[in-house]
Nucleic acid binder design. Structure first.
Lengths: 340, 340
DNA sequence: CCCCTCCATGGAAACGTTTCCACCGCCCCC
DNA sequence: GGGGGCGGTGGAAACGTTTCCATGGAGGGG
């Protein structure tokens, strides 16, 4: 039982009195093997505690049977959802998933891509941080690439699965405007960030509704807690006349809630707050936060499907857009006389 | 540039006019190669866009250069932290990480272990769901196993890295008792769950403080949102005289907060609430929740270190215990006259 | 001036699979 | 009754590395 080394296909073949080709056929399910022989092979394999080596198979097949997944941060609830979606799909297709976090650093991301290529992964799903990694090379050398949640303007040819952020922000903006708000603050992502879609949607929707956009109310912050807090604090202190805040991400929403509390602003009596990303704490807040849910799990699942099952549909056409959903809770109220 | 197939070590050797052994030495850093030759090899490799294949190397070395990580749910903030810790450590050691989620299902877990063994991972880190997976076999066949956050009583020989849950619950219990609370409800994990440590610590601490434990106040719930909610609702409705609730996990804490709100109980005026797991929403709650922080990131990091760097220290001795920290916020107040 | 050592290098044998090919009976159909 | 498939099987050649071993010089000490 406690054999010197892990059993190989050769050992099984010898033990079962057949050729290695036959053992291979039994385990890979290809070709034809008589029932009796299969039985014998399986028995021998069980006896020896044999597990086929993915390394040997991978070398021969020139693919590892796994995919790579790069997210900015596994700790972020949205990205965690996305990871779960990829895992769910990959499991169904018999692939394992190598996960890594790039923390928004293009250099780190490039390094991860490099490593994944060496692993000869069957494909890479990434929430890309930047164009520094040689995505094209990765796609060419050994695998295909699908972007999730974000796409890179420089690389339109790489397929992507995105949430309909523009639609989400539009419904949020319309909702706030519908409540009578005219001076709505917008907390957005970093200036150059690909999330510019959300800011554009905000501006467009307001324009469409005939509400003038005050530049002063649109602020941008890096995707970090401190930056988000600073941005929110800056906005609410500078403009005491703001009656609603639209946070374009859960970190920004968190900051808005914290700053409002710090400034003793009642929600929604003094300010209405709404955000993008319906993370779990939105419901725990007091009052519960109105938010736009973005389907992180589905994005991951779909990206994985696109990568592994639909090579045909990849590469041509527009990114896949998944719908968002407005979840109205208690953090937004009708316009009241300006505070102060 | 767009070569027919990805370049191999042979192609590089031919292009550089050297033997493949030399190319191998250049890339693996072993043996000695003259500077001039190294230069030539690197140039040729660059020209051909060569990446060594981890598959070939793995086959020869009989290890894949990756480790497996099994958690109940990547979406859970605590486990996400743990994953991040493992990733951080593994990256430093040049190993990749295959992540999968077992959702508390021992059968699924066993299947994942099986797959990881086939991948010939260098080791497995698991937050184990049960003893159904053949952990011993996994450890024997190809890799070593380290448990994180939980251990299995049936398998004391498998090394583990845990949070000092007993200590955390003790400080929480003492804190509540110190505020004068005598009828403290305890929301704990499923009856058979390994988290029994927490319930025991609760009972022991109370006993030590001379506070009698009322069985009626100690309830258990499966690790799911609905079960947690049901348990919390049951407790608070059944015993209106409870003045404080200790939730032994963030899902249970969430449930307690929601139920308290549902029942129109003011926190902490009517009930004090405290929980294990200092997840990010604890600070966003109103009032912010007092909690015991468990070092998820460190647990992951340490488990990975133990697995990859300290094979000597594995196997012998007690599990590694990492300290917790009581974070006092505003959700617990001094005892007041019973509600009603 | 010779021998021993050491560095730089190449050849070749693993590592554990899959799969092409060839082979052998057997059954079925003409 | 003979020939042509065809199901079942084994041999052997890849797949891309690492590494042991052998070889050939160069240099240094006796």
């Amino acid at each position: 039982m406690a054999q010197r080394r892990t059993a190989t296909i050769k050992d099984v073949a010898a033990a079962a009195g057949v050729g290695i080709a036959t053992v291979s056929r039994v385990f890979s399910g290809t070709g034809s093997v008589s029932a009796a022989t299969r039985e014998r092979v399986l028995a021998a394999a069980g006896e020896l505690d044999y597990r086929p080596s993915a390394l040997g198979r991978g070398l021969k097949l020139r693919r590892s049977g796994g995919i790579g997944l790069i997210v900015p941060d596994v700790t972020d609830p949205f990205h965690a959802d996305l990871v779960a979606g990829v895992l769910a799909c990959a499991r169904g297709l018999g692939e394992h998933v190598i996960v890594d976090a790039a923390y928004g650093d293009p250099a780190r991301e490039a390094e991860i891509v490099e490593r994944l290529v060496e692993q000869r992964v069957d494909g890479i799903i990434a929430v890309p941080a930047g164009a520094r990694a040689d995505w094209r090379a990765a796609a060419r050398v050994c695998s295909s690439v699908v972007f999730a949640d974000r796409m890179l303007p420089d690389l339109p040819e790489i397929p992507a699965v995105l949430a309909d952020d523009a639609g989400g922000v539009r419904s949020l903006t319309e909702y706030l405007a519908g409540l009578g708000h005219r001076r709505v603050g917008f907390l957005g992502g970093a200036p150059g960030a690909p999330a510019g879609v959300r800011e554009r949607a905000f501006r467009d929707t307001l324009a469409q509704l005939g509400v003038p956009v005050e530049e002063d109310l649109v602020v941008a912050a890096r995707a970090a807690r401190d930056a988000a807090y600073a941005a929110a604090a800056g906005l609410l202190q500078r403009r005491a006349d703001v009656t609603a805040v639209l946070a374009a991400g859960h970190l920004l929403g968190e900051a808005a809630v914290l700053v409002a509390r710090e400034l003793d602003l009642r929600v929604p009596a003094d300010v209405s707050i709404a955000m993008v990303d319906d993370v779990s704490w939105a419901e725990l807040c007091d009052p519960p936060l109105t938010a736009v849910a973005r389907p992180g799990h589905d994005i991951g699942y779909r990206a994985c499907e696109l990568l592994l099952r639909e090579p045909a549909r990849r590469g041509r056409g527009q990114p896949v857009l998944l719908p968002t959903e407005l979840v109205v809770r208690g953090s937004c109220g009708p316009l009241r006389p300006a505070r102060r």
